[in-house]
Design a protein around this nucleic acid. Structure first.
Lengths: 186, 186
DNA sequence: CGAAAATTTGGTAGAGTTACCAAAACCATC
DNA sequence: GATGGTTTTGGTAACTCTACCAAATTTTCG
């Protein structure tokens, strides 16, 4: 693997396992097996590194978790639910970067683009499942997934898993769907 | 004002204006007008301080933004929308603490209780407006508000404000309401 | 008034971080 | 094999943060 790629992979893993606080140059360098100075050769400042890690993580998540549902020709709506559930840990992982972005306009702009990208991908998946991809409700669906991920602090609790699923399932009924018309406007 | 209160007030303001990274003992002490050593007299460790700030902020938010709607005898559903919109900046402000809670189990447990408290209060408001307070959709409504706050990075953009409002308004139609029956189950 | 308790402060040790620099090792090309 | 560019490393200066301690000041109360 390439050195920058190894650095980004180590960064994503570190972010996933130990949170934003673990994303320091010494620790990432050690995890990637390069010297600390070498890190700054590829990513001169810390924010550039954070930004690259964020992009890498989102790309990775979309590739891993959207390619399969989109490859299958047709699927039942429950698949959207399952996909959303699989996204939850990854969303939580990125929360630290959102917080960090409050300090740095460049990072903030980059995250705005990343979030738009994710929303577009969610629209693609929903379109693939027969929903209207650009309905305003897609924003709310996306937001609810993000919010559930943020609030799901006690991650292991199975009852909250249940709550999450029923909540998202009900949210799906809000989306306009060809086979269940009449939900969009009164 | 009491010294601990002054410290907490300074902490909340600092968190609101400059994010989690600004919540260090030196800066809070300076903002509160006390010596740094004095801070540790009331809050020996940093996490205890963070926890106290979180609780203070949530109490303050609930008191400020829920007391008035609950005082008025009846109100139109659009008020729930307006209240939710007013909560967004405060929710954003607390995100940093959620991130910090990943490192510390005690802080995490405290935040779980705080989140439950907020959800209960939202239920109260919705009940006051005629909705079912314990409907599972309340979780989703809460989550959507949180998620919108997270994603609302470009805070000044009026178009995203518009998007937010329409999204939340549609979400409200999902909640079971006496005057608009038949939405709960197919 | 005097003693005990609470409050407040300055100082600091120790760890951790970012960003930088000069030098060494590596690699391609002529 | 020499040369110029790229990659890699060790070292470090300057800074910030947390947690602690001993001493000074103020307050409380018998």
């Amino acid at each position: 693997m390439n050195v920058p790629e190894r650095i980004l992979a180590a960064g994503v893993t570190l972010l996933h396992e130990q949170g934003l606080a673990a994303l320091t140059q010494p620790r990432i360098a050690k995890a990637a097996g390069v010297s600390q100075s070498h890190l700054t050769y590829y990513f001169p400042t810390r924010n550039e590194l954070l930004l690259a890690i964020a992009e890498h993580s989102v790309d990775q998540a979309l590739a891993l978790q959207l390619s399969q549902p989109l490859a299958k020709p047709a699927a039942d709506p429950a698949q959207a639910l399952a996909t959303a559930m699989r996204f939850l840990p990854r969303v939580r992982m990125l929360l630290g970067l959102v917080v960090a972005a409050d300090q740095d306009p460049a990072l903030r702009d980059a995250l705005v683009r990343l979030i738009a990208h994710v929303r577009h991908s969610i629209g693609q998946l929903l379109a693939h499942l027969g929903y209207q991809p650009d309905a305003p409700q897609v924003l709310v669906f996306h937001a609810a997934v993000v919010g559930l991920a943020v609030m799901n602090l006690g991650r292991q609790s199975p009852e909250s898993e249940q709550e999450l699923e029923t909540g998202l399932a009900q949210l799906l009924t809000l989306l306009p769907h060809p086979s269940q018309p009449g939900r969009s406007s009164p």
